[in-house]
């Protein structure tokens, strides 16, 4: 089950600050709901875990994150993550490319993720996987912005210490709702999760779709 997710969002912070954050997997990992970085293996390799619960299915991936490419000049990073569920329910891998651009005020981050899920979760189909990814992304973005603004702030849905799985019922329901009702509700779901933030998320497609507030 290969899913490609392209996202573009803006943050009210200078490019250097955003880049410094984005190029540190420990910091980024802390913003991913349900995820934690448990160990740094070498300069570019980390061990980590992520729990994803969709409906009745809990998947507890453990694996490695590796920085494949880090271009300080272009502010571009490529990360490869691979994990297997600890109880053998499947595996997932993700190749993510992130790039920070300077804007007149603030920065714009573009990310392209190629997610490959094998196992029970993948049976949910690309529609659900995409929607779950969207919901997770909104939570991530929320955390990301908070952390950028005040690095010591507590992170909402996750913490590096306990790494709770992302909200089971919430994610499943909003993902399913979004899948069934497509646009409007999908945006509602995003709005629910992103409402605490000042700048609206800017999904890549459609470009003009800036979500509710």
């Amino acid at each position: 089950m290969a899913v490609k997710i392209e996202k573009t969002f803006r943050v009210d912070q200078p490019t250097d600050k955003v880049w410094a954050f984005l190029s540190d997997p420990r910091k980024v990992g802390a913003c991913v709901p349900g995820a934690e970085i448990t160990e740094q293996v070498d300069e570019r390799t980390y061990k980590g875990a992520i729990k994803v619960k969709v409906g009745p299915s809990v998947t507890d991936y453990k694996g490695e994150v590796q920085i494949v490419r880090l271009d300080q000049a272009l502010h571009e990073i490529e990360i490869l993550g691979k994990g297997q569920d600890v109880r053998g329910k499947g595996s997932a891998s993700m190749k993510m490319t992130g790039k920070v651009h300077a804007l007149d005020s603030g920065s714009e981050v573009t990310s392209i993720s190629e997610l490959n899920v094998v196992g029970i979760l993948a049976q949910m189909g690309s529609r659900v996987i995409s929607e779950v990814s969207n919901v997770m992304f909104e939570q991530f973005l929320n955390n990301f912005r908070k952390q950028l603004q005040s690095p010591d702030a507590a992170i909402g849905e996750t913490s590096t210490a306990t790494a709770k799985p992302i909200s089971a019922v919430g994610v499943a329901f909003s993902a399913l709702k979004a899948t069934f009702t497509r646009h409007s509700s999908s945006e509602e779901a995003k709005a629910d999760l992103a409402k605490s933030d000042s700048a609206p998320p800017v999904p890549d497609k459609p470009k003009d779709d800036s979500g509710g507030k």
């Binding site: 089950m1 290969a2 490959n116 899920v117 094998v118 196992g119 993948a122 049976q123 189909g125």
Partner: peptide
């Protein structure tokens, strides 16, 4: 089935 052999008609 997808390319990894995941069932896409399983529900």
């Amino acid at each position: 089935y997808d390319e990894s052999g995941n069932v896409q008609g399983g529900t």
